[in-house]
Structure formats: structure tokens, C-alpha cells
Amino acid sequence: MRDGHLYGSLIDILNFGAQLMIVSIGMTLVIAATKGVDLSVGSVVAIAGAIACLNISKGDGSIANVIVAVGTALLVSIVLGVWNGFLVASVGIQPIIATLILMVSGRGVSQLITSGQIITVSNPTYKFIGAGSLLTLPFSIFIVAIVFLIAFLLTRKTALGLFIESVGCKPTASRLAGVKSKTVMFFVYMFCSLCAGVAGLLLSSNVSSADGNNAGLWVELDAILAVVIGGTSLNGGRFYLGGTVVGALIIQTLTTTIYMIGVPPEITLVVKAFVVLIVCLIQSEAFRKSLAFRWKTRSYPAEKEVKQHA
């Protein structure tokens, strides 16, 4: 305990992993409903942080100014999600290509907002969002809990979760059964971008600055890995929000541990690549059947020899 709140490695994992957990929750619904991924979440993180910090730096620093800045950033994030949903659901572009457009252009937009510079802010109210404490715990954890609760209630206590799973499993059959698949796709992309916007606010408020070039860089890859580790199928149709949160914590624990033991940060990317490979092989039905076939062919001669002796 220090200055009225807990600190240490576990608290750092929870605090720094908050952004990844929120982005991964949104990514879970996208993968479950579209059998694709949202590669634009990193750019949305940068844009949301840039808009919020720009408005606060030009404002009077009051609470109302912070609320307007946060609201504007989240509104823009939703609009970006509508754009992704339009390209995927209405135009029919593949999700990975549609979101790649915003991934590339969004990074440029964030740099235009910041004029290629790092915008710094010194506002206690805004800093509390990502670096404050409540009940001895980081305030960001409570934001993660709220986002998780909203996603859980919408997908497990309403018919929306069934619609997402049905669209992800059999989109044509769902449409013929009366499910508005386009509306479901619009929703998941809007929610995913909103989650990325919240993560951008947490990240920029934690460091009291907005970096349009590096903020949220490669977070989409970590989010996809967290979703896969959590048990959500990349083929769509089923998802586990709780498993996604656990997967995000595993990734953040891995990253924090590597930093703490003094291993070069570049090794983190290599380790994550091996984790992705292993998880994808485990989820591959063809790979599992191949292992089962080899195990049977190896054990069959031994069983035959035992029977002959008997």
C-alpha cells in the first residue's frame, strides 16, 4: 500500500492491461459475428486519444471541458465503427480488407489531428481516468468491469448474443430465418470501435499525452491473440467474453514478465508469435485429426503384439 492505493507487479498488469482487455472484448464480438477481424482498432485508439487531448489542450481545463472532449472522442469512434460496418455489411468487402483501409488511413488522420506532434495535457480530471485510483485499485479496472458488464448483459441476457452466434455460424440461414444480419454486423463494428475509443482515452490519460504515430500500435494483433487464447473460434459462431479477458491478462502478464527479467522487448514479439502458432494449431481440426491418426498408428502395433502374446 502506498499513498492510499495498492501497487506492485499485479497492479501494473491490471492497469496496463486494461486497454487491451477493453479492445479485446470488442474484437470478440467482431470475430464471432463476421469470421473476420477489425484491424482498425489501433488507429481508433490513436484518433480517440488525439481528439480528447486536443480539445482539452485548447479548452479551459474544467470538468465540462473534459466531458465534452471525452464525449467527442467516443462519438467519433462510433462513427468510425459505422464506416467499417458499412463497408462490410452494405458494400460486401471482406472484413480484413475493409478494416485495413481505416487501419492505414486512420493512422494518418491521427497524425493530422496532432499535426505530427505529441500533444501533452496536464489536467488532473482527465489523468484520473487512466492513472487514478478508486478503492485502492486502478480506476481503469472499474472501466473494464463496466464495459465487460455491458457486453455480457447485451449478449447473454438478450437475444443479441444468439443473433451474433447465428450470423457468425450460418449468415445465409440466419437471414432466411428473419435475423437482420446487416444490423448485427453494424452493431459489432460500432461496439468494437467504441471499445477502442475507450482504450484510447485510458492510454492517453495515463501518459497525459497523445501520440498519433505510436499510440495503439499493434494493439489489434494482441487483441486477436487474446480472443483466440480465450477460446473464441476464428470461424465465428461462438465466443467467450470471460475467456477473452483471461487471454488479455495472460498476454499482459507475459509482456510485463519479459520486461521485468531484463529480456529485450523484441523477444516479446517472438514469444507472441509462437503462442499464436500453438493456439491456432490446437484450434485446427485437421491438425488434431492428424495427431490422433498418428497416435493410433503408433499404438496399433503394440496392441497387436500384446494380443499375440495373450
Rank of each mutant, 00 (worst) to 15 (best):
102 L>W: 01
106 G>M: 09
95 P>G: 14
86 F>K: 02
86 F>S: 04
93 I>A: 14
102 L>E: 01
98 A>V: 13
78 I>M: 10
105 S>L: 15
102 L>I: 02
87 L>A: 01
84 N>Y: 06
92 G>A: 00
89 A>H: 07
89 A>S: 13
93 I>S: 07
101 I>C: 13
103 M>A: 03
87 L>E: 00
97 I>V: 15
85 G>K: 07
89 A>T: 07
85 G>F: 06
80 L>R: 03
85 G>Y: 04
96 I>A: 10
85 G>A: 04
87 L>H: 00
91 V>K: 07
81 G>P: 09
94 Q>P: 06
92 G>T: 00
86 F>W: 08
97 I>K: 11
90 S>A: 15
106 G>T: 12
78 I>Q: 03
102 L>H: 01
75 L>S: 10
75 L>C: 12
106 G>K: 02
80 L>D: 01
90 S>L: 13
83 W>Q: 10
104 V>H: 02
102 L>R: 00
95 P>A: 13
104 V>Q: 09
97 I>R: 10
87 L>V: 00
100 L>H: 02
83 W>T: 12
77 S>A: 14
86 F>Q: 01
90 S>F: 14
89 A>K: 06
101 I>P: 05
87 L>Q: 01
85 G>N: 05
94 Q>I: 11
102 L>V: 02
82 V>A: 12
95 P>C: 13
84 N>L: 09
83 W>M: 15
104 V>N: 07
88 V>M: 03
76 V>M: 06
78 I>L: 12
83 W>C: 15
82 V>L: 14
85 G>M: 06
100 L>Y: 03
98 A>Q: 08
84 N>F: 09
98 A>P: 07
101 I>G: 12
104 V>T: 05
78 I>T: 01
96 I>M: 13
95 P>V: 13
80 L>Y: 05
103 M>S: 03
83 W>L: 15
101 I>A: 15
82 V>D: 06
89 A>Y: 08
87 L>I: 00
75 L>N: 03
86 F>A: 08
81 G>A: 10
87 L>C: 00
94 Q>M: 11
88 V>W: 02
90 S>H: 13
85 G>R: 04
94 Q>D: 11
81 G>R: 05
79 V>L: 15
101 I>E: 05
99 T>C: 04
76 V>Y: 06
79 V>M: 15
103 M>G: 03
89 A>W: 10
94 Q>C: 09
82 V>R: 02
101 I>R: 11
105 S>N: 07
86 F>N: 02
97 I>F: 14
105 S>K: 08
95 P>K: 11
104 V>W: 05
98 A>I: 12
81 G>F: 08
96 I>L: 10
77 S>N: 05
94 Q>L: 13
91 V>S: 09
